[in-house]
Design a protein around this nucleic acid. Structure first.
Lengths: 125, 125
DNA sequence: TAATAGAAATTACATCTGTAATCTTAGGAG
DNA sequence: CTCCTAAGATTACAGATGTAATTTCTATTA
């Protein structure tokens, strides 16, 4: 099992761009993030580089520029981060957290229906 | 509205001790955390000091020692941290996060019942 | 082929974190 | 009243992070 590198807050944005838009050049990442963060292009490049150094991102050379892609699975990172969050903020037990979120979140009727379905499935072991 | 100071991972443990056990001396915090973290007492004191400097913790003098207590509300901190988490990891929409957690968490029958109740309440606006 | 522009690599630098050790000081023991 | 001890205050120091700028290549253009 590979060790997931630790991804910082800012780096998460970069990873999300790479996860959702597949392999991208540095500039494409910059464009992708432009609406989400007010970073200078150089800042984005730095973040990409750090992720490469951490092993979270790899790249293929393509002429003089690189095409970057995520080297760690989104699902794994999300899972790790989620467990860490529940641990830190809720002391490890998910139920109070779920209750708080369910109460607080704006959920559409369909959202509620789906979540109830999930709960009912869990009910039957 | 007061700005919540940013509380780091390690600092969260200290805050939790103070939130749940009320005003404590530094040594009591150390004892409280002993089972949860393998920190030297000096480390715990440092964390307390940083929290005081950040305004998250205050203290009353009591002879030559201080009695520390949380100066920010647990609910507010938990809320802030939760929103930040959903934002970072799930891009701001709670539903996929809730679905993932509901599927993944080990929930007792009572847990499920309570969560369903919450959902049903939300259903009626 | 030489110059240029745009990538990537390297360097910068303050702040935050994790993890303590050392210094200072005031209150209690003698 | 003095000395010691334990609290709190200050200092330490490396690595992570946020946020870039500067330097170095290299492929393409003139």
């Amino acid at each position: 099992m590979k060790k997931l590198p630790k991804i910082s807050e800012s780096e998460w944005l970069v990873m999300q761009a790479l996860w959702s838009r597949g392999p991208l050049t540095a500039n494409e990442v910059v464009e992708e993030l432009a609406p989400k963060a007010k970073w200078k292009p150089k800042t984005v490049k730095t973040l990409i580089n750090r992720l490469v150094k951490k092993g979270a991102v790899k790249f293929k050379k393509e002429g003089r520029k690189y095409r970057y892609y995520a080297a760690v699975s989104e699902a794994k990172c999300v899972g790790t981060e989620s467990r860490s969050f529940v641990q830190r903020v809720y002391g490890g037990t998910a139920r109070p957290m779920l209750a708080a979120f369910l109460e607080d979140a704006e959920l559409s009727a369909e959202d509620i229906a789906e979540l109830k379905k999930i709960l009912e499935q869990k009910e039957g072991e």
